[in-house]
């Protein structure tokens, strides 16, 4: 775990702080995905052939989520 400090055992609040930071990163990541999806959704209504562009945006988002979540799949 932490090797930087002289004390080998990670501090409780240190762990908690890292967990919070990781959670925040996850939140931002997924929020970004959602925003891109909705942006694509609105954009596809404005620009032409909305069916195709919406399909592309939607499929891209779903594939990205599956890959991002499944990347850490363990056997």
């Amino acid at each position: 775990m932490t090797t930087a400090g002289a004390v080998g055992v990670p501090q409780e609040d240190d762990f908690e702080a890292r967990r919070r930071a990781a959670a925040r990163r996850t939140g931002f990541g997924l929020l970004l995905v959602a925003l891109i999806f909705f942006f694509g959704f609105i954009a596809s209504r404005v620009w032409l052939s909305s069916d195709v562009s919406m399909g592309v945006v939607g499929a891209a988002v779903v594939v990205f989520v599956i890959v991002a979540v499944g990347r850490h799949l363990r056997k």
């Binding site: 996850t26 939140g27 990541g29 997924l30 989520v65 991002a68 979540v69 799949l73 363990r74």
Partner: peptide
Amino acid sequence: VFNWLATMWKGSITL
């Protein structure tokens, strides 16, 4: 749904 996804995000998943 968002939170379930985020729970899996970078998790060490087995099926």
